[in-house]
Structure formats: C-alpha cells, structure tokens
Amino acid sequence: MVERMKTSPVRGGAHLDDPVLDQLLSEPVVVLMVGPAGAGKSTVARELAARRPHLAIVSYDQEQGDGQVVGEAAVARAHTRLDRHLADGAGAVVDGTHRQSARRAAVRRIAATHRLPTVAVVVLPGLDQCLHRQTLRTRVVAEHRVRAHHAAVTALLPVLPGEGYDLVAVLALAASGLPDFRENAAAVRDPLKS
C-alpha cells in the first residue's frame, strides 16, 4: 500500500515571527533546516532555539566534529539524539543541508514516531553570498560543493511541499542576503519570487 503524502502549506518570504510558523513552533515540533552550506542555517537554528527553549539543536556538523564532510555515521548519531530529545518531550531543530531525500525522510519518520509536526525551514540566499561566507567560516566547504548544494536546494523548492510537512517556510532575506530576523521587517527578498 502506498501512503499518499499531504501537500504542505508554503509560506514564502516568512519571518521567524510569522504567525503560522510561530503557532507551530510554540509547542514541541521538529524543525528541519534546509539550505546550502553558508546559507545561515545554523544562525537561524540558534535564533529559533533562543526564542523557544523547548527546542534543542541537533546538528550534523557537531556530530561529525572533525571539520570533514558529514558522513552517515554522524547523521545516524544526530538522528539518535533527535529521537532522545523527542522522547523526553522536547522539540528540536535539525541543522543540516537536508538536500538528500533519505535524510529528510528519516527526520520525518522520527517526528511521526513521536506524533510531532514537522516544519521545513528553507534558508536560500544567493549563490554568491553562500560562496563569500565560506571565507568567514571555521569549517570551509569547497566551492564545487557549495555550488552543488545551492543547485540541489533550489531544485527542492517545488518538491518540499509534497513531502508531507506541516509547513514549509521559506525565510525572507534582508538586503545583506542573511535571513531577516526583525519582526515585521519590510524591504526583504522572497527567494520564491527571485
């Protein structure tokens, strides 16, 4: 029997204070960060956890720990940590590129086991900004990988709504290309319309 996935609502140009996103994040939930290397996913994850103490951060990079490309063992450890946080009644922000469908599906399965909603939060600045940010990072990702990540995440935009999330929120970007955290911010760019 094939399970039919629901189509997720999409909030393009969303802010972290978006009322629909805020309502979902007010209770335990699993937030799946989606974006290329250097997009600002970890910054958004920290901001979400700071605003909502019931959300723990589960990071593939932290599980890898050696500055290398995230391997399957690190992903498995992160998923085990996620499962433990959810079993303890907390929610979590899962920080990773999530360009691989198997990783996204695994996170959704873990959330479903605990009967928690899942929200995909997409951070997608321009490729030039992602490449520039590599010069500012401790863990530098090779240019060809950043380009591949950016292309993969861009290709995911029409796919994510069909994967069964409770919400897909594509964050608005400030003129700097960074996610705009200001409440009720005006002059922002919606990656869905660029």
Rank of each mutant, 00 (worst) to 15 (best):
V2D: 09
R4S: 04
M5V: 10
M5K: 13
K6C: 00
K6Q: 08
S8A: 11
S8I: 04
V10G: 08
A14E: 12
H15M: 10
D17S: 15
D17C: 11
D18R: 00
D18T: 01
P19S: 14
D22I: 03
D22S: 15
Q23R: 15
Q23T: 14
L24T: 07
L24H: 11
S26R: 15
V29T: 06
A37Y: 08
A37S: 15
G38C: 10
G40H: 01
S42P: 07
A45T: 05
A45S: 15
R46L: 11
E47N: 12
E47W: 08
L48W: 01
A50H: 14
R51L: 15
P53W: 03
P53S: 14
H54W: 13
L55I: 13
L55H: 02
A56E: 14
V58L: 06
Y60T: 13
Q64I: 11
D66G: 11
V70A: 15
G71I: 02
A74P: 10
V75W: 01
A76D: 15
A78C: 10
T80K: 14
L82D: 08
R84L: 14
R84N: 10
L86Y: 01
A92I: 06
G96N: 08
H98T: 08
Q100L: 14
S101W: 08
R104S: 04
A106R: 05
R109D: 13
A111N: 09
H114R: 02
R115P: 01
R115S: 11
L116G: 03
T118M: 06
T118E: 08
L124C: 05
P125M: 13
P125H: 10
L127A: 07
C130R: 00
H132L: 05
H132I: 02
T135S: 13
R137V: 00
R137Y: 01
R137F: 00
T138A: 06
V140I: 11
A142H: 13
E143Q: 13
H144L: 05
V146M: 08
V146L: 09
A151I: 03
A151L: 07
L157H: 03
P161H: 05
E163M: 07
G164R: 00
G164H: 04
D166Y: 03
A169G: 10
L171S: 02
A175R: 13
S176A: 12
R182A: 15
A186T: 09
R189S: 08
P191W: 03
P191T: 11
L192V: 11
S194N: 12
